[in-house]
Amino acid sequence: MSDILGMIIYILKGSLITLKLYIVTIVLSIPLGVLGALGKISKSKLLSSFVGFYTWIFRGTPLLLQLFFIYFGLPHFLGINFSKFQAASLTFILNYGAYFTEIFRGGILSIDKGQYEAAKVLGLSYPQTMRRIILPQTIRRVLPATSNEAITLVKDTALVTAISMEDLLRNANQIVAREYTIIPFVIAGVIYLVLTSIIVWIFRKLEEKYSIYE
């Protein structure tokens, strides 16, 4: 029994790394996605093609490859050394930022043109229109897709095992290798389920909150 408790504690310690990576990624990739979306719909050809190139790269190659590239490749090419956590955070933020860019862009474009016209004849500037009128309506429309990404991210964090970060999955895996038991995998599975259930619950609450006006 105390064995299993020990396992749980060890795996939970790994979960903290997973959680930290998760929070950093969500907190930074969502604003990155908003900026990316605004860049992609901007009238500036240069800006929109730059963002287009970014999403093309990050949505078109495997996340694991990006992680390897940033952790092993960048130090080699640029002489920048990242800690494992920094490399993983950077990779996840850039990767998820690319997906959020596309999701938010679609959301913004789905807002009726009349909203822009109404704001314009009332004297609102473009930034005011975006901030006060368009983006708040976009939030509601992109919640379901954002929720999907947020759930996928919980599971994608397990990829950091590949650069030997001591996350939830790696800690579980270590015990499995040492003790010849698959109980740690069950424990890990349960923790992932708890985490994703929390995310689902949060998004359900958000959708309720934003549905009052429809």
Partner: peptide, 28 residues
């Protein structure tokens, strides 16, 4: 000039009062 549209174009995420006071607050 003020303009009124065929399809109203009210801001759906704002209440009736908020629709009316949005521009006076933000613009004026």
């Amino acid at each position: 000039m003020g303009m009124v549209f065929q399809n109203f174009h009210l801001f759906p995420h704002k209440t009736v009062l908020e629709n009316v006071i949005e521009a006076p607050i933000i613009v004026n």
